[in-house]
Computed example of a mutant assay.
Amino acid sequence: MRDFAHTPVALPQLSDMLSALMQNPAPDGPRFQYASAGGLYPVQTYLYVKQGRIDGIAPGSYYLHPRERTLIRLDSDATLDGDSYDYFVNRPTYERAAFAVFFVADMSAITPIYGAASRDMVLLETGQMAQHLTSRAGEVGLGLCGIGNLEKNRVADLFDLGAAHQLIYSMLGGVAPGPMAPASDAYNDDTEEFDI
């Protein structure tokens, strides 16, 4: 999907969509909805929110903490310039989007075990994450567009990433054209953390 309604994303929609990436309790121990090589889960999720595009959440950069089930604010002054995207293909999509999702691999968490195969392992994991997120987005009235190319240095600055971090994949999102699906609300104004 490359077109999004200008309607702001409702916080419950965002919460329900991101729940696809959360760690869930289980009788025999916490579980994710997707697999990871060696159970390492080295792929991290970051979010950039545009000004006024998600009701109830301030603009800026965020880290999605899957085990704590929270969206943690990193920098309220962070800005993602449209020039980070290809001018003719992806920039128009960015201009219409409400938010951007970034899947970043912490290679230091997997390379000691998988060595040269580590990149392949994080690609498989990221693919599963993106698929789960896309499926859930459609269920709650949101749309996502996968982005194959953008200025990686700008993303590193946006989230203060280290040398061991590699941007694997990115998606742009917003309200899908048409009626919105209902979702459940969860937001903690005191801690600036988003409870999923």
Rank of each mutant, 00 (worst) to 15 (best):
L47A: 04
G56A: 02
T45N: 08
R69D: 03
E68K: 12
I54G: 00
R53Y: 10
G56N: 07
T70Q: 10
G56E: 09
V49D: 00
Y46V: 08
V43T: 14
L40M: 15
Q44W: 04
G56V: 05
G60V: 08
P42Y: 07
R69Q: 14
V49I: 15
R67V: 11
I54F: 07
D55N: 15
G56C: 12
Q44F: 04
A58G: 06
G39H: 03
Y48L: 06
V49K: 01
Y63F: 15
I57N: 06
G52V: 08
L64A: 11
I72C: 02
S61R: 09
I72K: 08
S61Y: 05
Q51K: 08
I57K: 00
Y48H: 14
D55G: 09
S61P: 08
H65S: 12
P66K: 00
Y46Q: 09
D55Q: 15
P59R: 07
L40S: 00
Y46H: 15
L47C: 14
L71C: 06
P66C: 03
P42Q: 09
G52P: 08
R53Q: 14
G56F: 06
E68M: 11
Y41K: 01
L47K: 07
G39R: 06
L47P: 04
G52M: 01
V43L: 00
P59W: 01
I72V: 12
Y41T: 05
G60M: 10
L71I: 12
R67S: 11
S61C: 12
Y63G: 03
Q44T: 11
T70C: 02
S61D: 13
G52Y: 10
L71M: 15
Q51F: 03
G60A: 03
Y63P: 02
Y48V: 01
T45M: 07
